[in-house]
Amino acid sequence: MLELQMREQNSHPKPPLLLEIKNICKSFVSKNSVIKAVDRVSFNIHKGETYALVGESGCGKTTTGRMILRLLDVDKGQILFEGIPISGLTKRQLRKKRHTIQIIFQNPYGSLNPRMKISTLLAEAIVSRAEKPSHIRAEAERLLQSVGLGKENLDKYPHEFSGGQRQRICIARAIATHPKLIICDEPVSALDLLVQAQILCLLQKLQKEYGFSYLFISHDLSVVRYMSDRIGVMYNGRIVEEGTRDEIFKNPQHSYTRLLFASLPTLKNADAFAAAHIQKDTETCQKVLRQGKEHSNQKVEVSPTHYLLADQ
């Protein structure tokens, strides 16, 4: 397996594309207003890569994730998964395809059915792989162990676990179907700092083991820096800047990306932090808001992998 990966990396500089997103749009219509949740968003995810979408709540990052899973349909644009347009699939075709994309939700307290034992929860996902019934329990044990939980937990109910342990169960359930892409929708924002570190390390370990790609959705830049290979910064439904992790962190270009960095709390100059940012913050925020409305479709390239949207 490792050799194969090595050979792949040697022959192609970049692993093959897994997911291509081309100019997708989604608006939500209510009685008297139309909200553009996602507006002309395009990005690619390669095999084995972690792509992160960063932005504030309401910027459309979760909506993007849901459209990839086809929990929501796109208004315009195309989503290609392994070259096949997802939006064109019929119900039956989609059913066959769906186990290749999995999702880990933000709130582990809400995403596990409280009336199901852990074994049942995992079995549901394993069955989709057409495993023999006799194998299911053994497979569930193996999955639990790979996320760092003992097999004695199989007959427990979700309420018996802490938040971190529940998130581990969610991860076990996500990898049970052998997916190629896992969408992590704020997987650690409901957890404590020390538990966050545990879960992030687990996610990385599993990626090395199974080789799937992550779409990592988060508002927390520090978490994103640890996890991702490439980053897309979203604002008002658009990706305003995209680049590799180092490019975004060392050389942020867009004013909104800079604002995100400025808002990160630090331990070193804690005193200077809040006081200095209150005026600057609101000023930049308004400036950014104005710019956000006037974003053109023009991309300014900083490097081949790094671009930002130009202001008009």
Binding site: E56, S57, H219, D220, L221, L259, L260, A262, S263, L264, P265, F273, A274, A275, H277, I278, D281, T282, C285
Partner: peptide, 15 residues
């Protein structure tokens, strides 16, 4: 809250 809003709220509390 989001990080940018968090920074604002912390600033307000501090003031």
């Amino acid at each position: 809250l989001d990080v940018t809003i968090q920074a604002q709220i912390l600033g307000i509390l501090k003031n």
